[in-house]
């Protein structure tokens, strides 16, 4: 710290700072990454995969605000959603550079078949245990993914991942604490935790499925199947401590990466996009 702040700076109150901020939005360069280049079509598609996962999950978590079991959980899920919105903005912004579209164009003006999100993120919030099971699975997956994507040959993806991994680490911890607490709580909380894992496990397989796109992005994207051993190793001790078994049973068809979605996504998008579509170009 230098002395100049005390010496030169007149004390500024928050009112001074926020009194009259007149900013021409067009002068704000929306570029997120210094020196970021334009994404190729394949890299843009990959950025859409990850960006759509983050966006859809954030939208889901936002629905808990004011409805979580306790005030602290409203705040926690709201904060997790905010982090995910941040990741989605960076990723969709980058994806948009390939087709000259903004992050808002991609979030609000695409329809269901154009979304590339996984089926697990579009599964309904359900009860709190379902939301926690979904968080637990996705946060552990994202942590492994972003840990490795930091080494991507694509500088923009690497920068986004380096930022995101630190935040996702907290999401992983949050859901882990809840899995342990619910599974070892009352008979009712344990019953709900077991039901939630059993309902969501069919959607785990799709997360680690390799799409042909991955073959074209060697060194840039992270191969989903390569994450499975680390994912299994990370969740095993938690499930063991919680005395939960990995559910067996059917595997859902998936197809999110190619735009095949379950019925849930359309309802979610309708709610997310209605305002922008009712008032195109509106700002505040």
């Amino acid at each position: 710290m230098s002395e100049h702040i005390e010496a030169d700076a007149p004390a500024q109150t928050p009112e001074d700072i926020h009194g009259h901020v007149a900013v021409d939005v067009t002068t704000l360069d929306a570029e997120l990454i210094e020196g970021a280049s334009v994404a190729t079509a394949d890299v843009a598609e990959y950025a859409l995969w990850l960006g759509d996962d983050a966006l859809v999950l954030a939208q889901q978590l936002g629905a808990w605000i004011s409805r979580a079991p306790e005030l602290e959980e409203d705040v926690a899920l709201g904060n997790v959603a905010l982090d995910l919105i941040g990741h989605a903005r960076s990723l969709l912004h980058y994806a948009g550079t390939a087709s000259n579209r903004t992050e808002d164009d991609l979030a609000y003006w695409r329809t269901e078949p154009d979304f590339r999100s996984l089926h697990i993120v579009e599964q309904p919030n359900g009860d709190f245990a379902h939301t926690i099971a979904r968080q637990f699975i996705v946060a552990h997956y994202l942590f492994e993914l972003y840990s490795r994507l930091r080494a991507s040959a694509d500088a923009t993806l690497a920068a986004i991942a380096a930022k995101a991994v630190k935040e996702v680490d907290y999401h992983r911890d949050h859901s882990t604490q809840w899995v342990l607490r619910l599974a070892q709580g009352t008979d009712e909380s344990r019953r709900r935790m077991i039901t939630a894992f059993s309902d969501l496990w069919p959607y785990v397989e799709e997360i680690f499925r390799d799409d042909p796109l991955i073959d074209r992005l060697e060194g840039i994207a992270v191969r989903p199947s390569s994450l499975l051993p680390a994912f299994d190793a990370a969740i095993a001790p938690v499930l063991a401590e919680a005395e939960l078994d990995i559910p067996s049973g059917f595997v859902a068809s998936g197809g999110g990466r190619t735009g095949k979605h379950s019925e849930h996504l359309a309802f979610l998008l309708a709610e997310m996009q209605v305002l922008t579509r009712a008032h195109p170009g509106a700002s505040w």
Binding site: I17, V21, A22, L28, L82, D83, L84, I85, G86
Partner: peptide, 16 residues
Amino acid sequence: YSGCPAMDAMRDDVLE
């Protein structure tokens, strides 16, 4: 943080 809403305010304030 990636989603920190204060960033927009800080950016506007620097400009101002």
